[in-house]
């Protein structure tokens, strides 16, 4: 060892970090993951809304709820295949369920999905049976299914499915996902607004009663406003880590898709629709719902991809792990 102590980085005036190599690894996941989060959230949200409509609503509202359960089942169905497709070794998907380890959000999510999917399918089957869409013996079985129990179980599972995905991403060391603790809230809110939108879309097309449509539209507005509020707080807390989302690579799909299409357009359309009735209003609300659903995908996808970008941001990683947060 020399007699001269080596100079420190600070004395040399060089920036921290090893060249520009990232501190953390870029996540290996691809589009299947945000697609699954989106559909899972939508299914959970739709199931919850439908259950609420059935439990608290009028007879008219209940009619809409029936469609809602079918929508939820339809959205839940592709979730497992998407999740499996993204695995490095899809033929080992069942290893997810070889242990129960809620400490791992991924494990918790796998169990939740494994439980939610049959519940929502059964619930949809019950509706199909009621609507006379099932052949005799099947319809008899479907009628036996305990609806309130399924509603309760499905609502809890659906809520977990809608809410865990943001926690899953947050419980990592990826700057954009982990910096703020609100990502779970953002995804939950987005699941809510898209869930409402999905039910509303079905309702508007199936000539549901105007009153119920208005209820859904108002609920959608509230959910969207809530989503914007949580999202705003999330972006504020994320700071520099959110650069790839709000400034760089994914800013266009984020602002135009997730915020503009997914939130602002539906808000305006729902305002315009107001208490009005008629075919035009139904069309307005259908468009609003489609925008909201599409925007919800944009939100998941942009946050997911921008998070992968932020993994390459060495300074953001250091910011995440400093005692004194910069």
């Amino acid at each position: 060892m020399s007699d001269h102590p080596s100079p420190r980085a600070a004395e040399l005036g060089v920036p921290a970090g090893y060249y520009d190599y990232p501190v953390v690894k870029r996540p290996v996941w691809t589009w299947e993951v945000p697609a699954y989060f989106w559909l899972g959230g939508l299914a959970g949200g739709a199931f919850l809304v439908s259950s609420a409509a059935e439990l608290f609503g009028t007879d008219e509202d209940r009619l809409v709820a029936r469609d809602g359960f079918v929508v939820a089942a339809a959205a839940a169905l592709p979730c497992a295949p998407l999740l499996i497709k993204d695995l490095g070794n899809p033929q080992r998907f069942h290893h997810m369920l070889r242990i129960f380890k809620p400490l791992s959000p991924m494990n918790l999510g796998a169990w939740t999905l494994a439980a939610f999917t049959p519940v929502t399918l059964a619930r949809a089957a019950a509706e199909a049976g009621r609507a006379g869409l099932l052949p005799g013996p099947l319809a008899a079985v479907a009628r036996l299914l305990p609806r309130p129990l399924m509603n309760a179980a499905g609502s809890v599972l659906g809520a977990v499915l809608a809410g865990y995905s943001g926690v899953l991403l947050g419980a990592t060391n990826i700057p954009l996902w982990a910096k703020s603790k609100l990502l779970g809230g953002v995804f939950m809110a987005s699941a809510a607004s898209s869930g409402v939108a999905a039910v509303m879309m079905a309702a508007a097309r199936r000539r549901a009663p105007e009153k119920t449509l208005h209820k859904l539209s108002r609920l959608g507005t509230l959910a969207t406003l809530g989503e914007l509020a949580v999202l705003g707080a999330f972006l504020k807390q994320s700071g520099r880590a959110a650069d790839p989302l709000v400034k760089n690579a994914f800013s266009v799909p984020f602002w135009a898709g997730a915020v503009g299409l997914g939130s602002l357009v539906p808000l305006v359309l729902e305002q315009v629709a107001g208490r009005r009735t008629g075919k035009f209003t139904r069309s307005l609300l259908t468009v609003s719902a489609v925008c909201s659903i599409a925007g919800s995908f944009c939100l998941r996808w942009t946050i997911f991809e921008a998070g992968k970008e932020s993994a390459g941001d060495q300074a953001a990683s250091f910011g995440l792990s400093r005692r004194t947060q910069a």
Binding site: V23, V24, K25, W29, D86, G88, P90, M96, A171, A311
Partner: peptide, 16 residues
């Protein structure tokens, strides 16, 4: 056992 879910990758704070 590993089925390649990839969750450990972003979890590691050291990018290992």
């Amino acid at each position: 056992i590993c089925n390649g879910c990839g969750y450990c990758v972003p979890a590691c704070p050291f990018g290992v």
